[in-house]
């Protein structure tokens, strides 16, 4: 039966992804744009993520050991091309970069998982199946962004002392020790709205669903949406920035701010960052 399947679908089994117009006829391809110019580094997105996705707060000691579980982290960089003494704050302050799973189209983590716990879904998400994960951490070793977080401890025992467990999101599982986890683009929200839309016999409308981080961002720096729908905000921004999903090197005009991180590794991320504009004269 599977042999039949193999022979019948040979061409589709042998094709590489992403290819041109891969999502042209698809219903969904979830993607994101983050405007660094609007980001103030306030960490509201991180907090929202912790609340939405049942992330444990690990405490200072474990944070120092590198056991933090921040799926979405705000990275702080001082200066750009200018040398600043370690103990001084530069005049223009820090630069911030919210970093989460880039939902790569050709994700390095997916190839190496021995049990196939992480793979690509039809709507362009890099999924993580907790039940299947055996915790070899190879995905994390191979992730160039290092955005995968491993449950070093049984956090469920200590992170939500009674009655804090009542704040847990019932739509999201609480992970046990020994499994890998990462940003899911709030897949529980996406699933719910896609199911609702399906019941109504339509597609999810732009703005109908968004991730917790995008919802919480006070400056609306994060735009989330369906790239397969050319009318969506995200698709328009991608187009305006002249970024194509299936290209590893973007041919674009000079004043364009959009870029994807580590395109040269051919990971084809689904998150576009808009560079911060700085007035160097001032």
């Amino acid at each position: 039966m599977s042999l039949n399947n193999l022979i019948k679908n040979w061409t589709s089994f042998r094709s590489r992804r992403p290819y041109l117009d891969q999502y042209k006829n698809a219903d969904y391809k979830w993607a994101m744009v983050i405007d660094l110019d609007a980001c103030t580094g306030c960490n509201a997105c991180t907090t929202a993520c912790y609340a939405e996705n049942n992330l444990p707060v690990v405490g200072k000691e474990r944070y120092e050991k590198g056991h933090a579980m921040h799926w979405l982290r705000i990275e702080r960089y001082w200066g750009e091309g200018e040398s600043v003494p370690v103990d001084m704050v530069p005049d223009r302050g820090a630069q911030f970069l919210p970093m989460m799973c880039q939902q790569c189209e050709a994700a390095p983590c997916e190839v190496v998982c021995p049990v196939g716990a992480t793979h690509h879904s039809a709507d362009g998400l890099n999924t993580q199946v907790y039940n299947r994960c055996v915790g070899s951490r190879y995905c994390s070793a191979n992730c160039p962004y290092k955005v995968r977080y491993f449950n070093w401890w049984q956090y469920a025992d200590s992170a939500w002392p009674n009655p804090l467990e009542l704040q847990l999101n019932p739509d999201v599982s609480v992970r046990s020790k020994g499994v890998m986890e990462k940003c899911t683009f709030c897949v529980q929200r996406l699933r719910e709205s896609m199911d609702h839309a399906k019941t109504d016999g339509r597609l999810v409308k732009d703005g109908e669903v968004t991730t917790a981080c995008a919802q919480a961002c006070p400056t609306s720096a994060i735009t989330f949406g369906n790239l397969a729908n050319p009318q969506s905000q995200v698709a328009k921004k991608w187009k305006n920035q002249q970024i194509a999903l299936e290209k590893d090197e973007q041919k674009k005009d000079e004043n364009m701010r959009g870029y994807r991180i580590f395109e040269e590794f051919r990971t084809y991320p689904s998150v576009v960052y808009l560079e911060r504009v700085r007035d160097l004269e001032a």
């Binding site: 193999l6 679908n9 089994f13 042998r14 590489r16 992804r17 992403p18 983590c109 997916e110 793979h119």
Partner: peptide
């Protein structure tokens, strides 16, 4: 590899 729902991994061919 071709059985069940085929799973694309890392943009590589399924087989």
């Amino acid at each position: 590899q071709a059985s069940f729902i085929y799973q694309v991994r890392g943009g590589r061919p399924v087989v």
